[in-house]
Simulated scan of single mutants.
Amino acid sequence: MISSEKRYAQAAYSSMTDGFDPKDAAVFGTICHQFPSMVRLNGLRLTAIFYDAKASASDSSVRSKAYSRYCKYMEQALELQGVRLSEFVNSPACDSIRYRLLSRQALAASIWFKRYAEAILKVDAEAQEVDA
């Protein structure tokens, strides 16, 4: 059986190497660095909705693709099996106990995304841009 930490690490590593365009590394790395602080500040529900909205933007910009990639691999790490994170945290099946557990899991997974963004993409944590 695979441990949750190993699953998080595999999903994060895949997000960095699976057909990733290196010129977009700064954008994706910034998104990886922003997610945990946004979860701590706003909660998983609002952060998931925000990321999903950015991923579903009508333009096909680099930023929109980066948000989409992050959501896809975070959902993979959390084993949501094809259900979007924003839909899951807003579903009736996600009671407060499940929501808190999922929040802890998302924060644990996001650590791997940050680590790999620094190690593989060479994105500096201090050089984050603010995205509203």
Rank of each mutant, 00 (worst) to 15 (best):
M1T: 07
I2Y: 14
S3G: 08
S4M: 11
R7I: 14
R7C: 09
Y8G: 08
Y8S: 01
Q10L: 12
A11W: 04
Y13H: 08
T17Y: 04
D18K: 02
G19L: 07
G19I: 15
F20Q: 11
D21G: 00
D21H: 07
K23W: 05
K23M: 10
D24H: 14
V27I: 13
V27D: 10
T30S: 08
C32T: 07
P36F: 09
S37T: 10
M38E: 12
R40H: 04
N42E: 11
N42S: 10
N42F: 14
G43M: 09
L46K: 14
T47E: 04
T47M: 15
T47R: 04
A48K: 07
I49D: 15
I49A: 04
I49H: 04
F50C: 03
F50Y: 12
Y51K: 06
Y51G: 02
D52E: 05
K54P: 00
K54R: 13
A55P: 00
A55F: 00
S56I: 00
S56E: 11
S56M: 06
A57S: 13
A57F: 07
S58P: 11
D59V: 03
S60N: 14
S61N: 03
V62W: 01
R63D: 06
A66Q: 05
A66V: 01
S68A: 10
R69T: 02
R69H: 02
Y70H: 12
Y73T: 02
M74R: 01
E75D: 11
Q76S: 12
Q76N: 12
A77D: 08
L78S: 10
E79Y: 09
L80G: 06
Q81M: 02
V83E: 12
V83F: 13
V83Y: 10
V83M: 14
R84D: 09
L85R: 04
F88I: 01
F88R: 10
V89I: 12
V89T: 05
N90R: 05
S91R: 06
P92F: 01
C94T: 09
D95H: 13
R98M: 09
R98L: 15
L101P: 04
L102Y: 05
L102R: 06
Q105M: 12
L107D: 00
L107Y: 03
A108D: 06
K114A: 14
Y116L: 15
Y116E: 03
E118R: 13
E118C: 02
A119L: 12
A119F: 09
I120H: 13
K122S: 08
V123Q: 08
V123E: 02
D124W: 00
D124H: 08
E126Q: 11
A127H: 08
A127E: 06
Q128V: 04
Q128M: 13
Q128C: 13
E129L: 08
E129P: 00
V130M: 08
D131M: 14
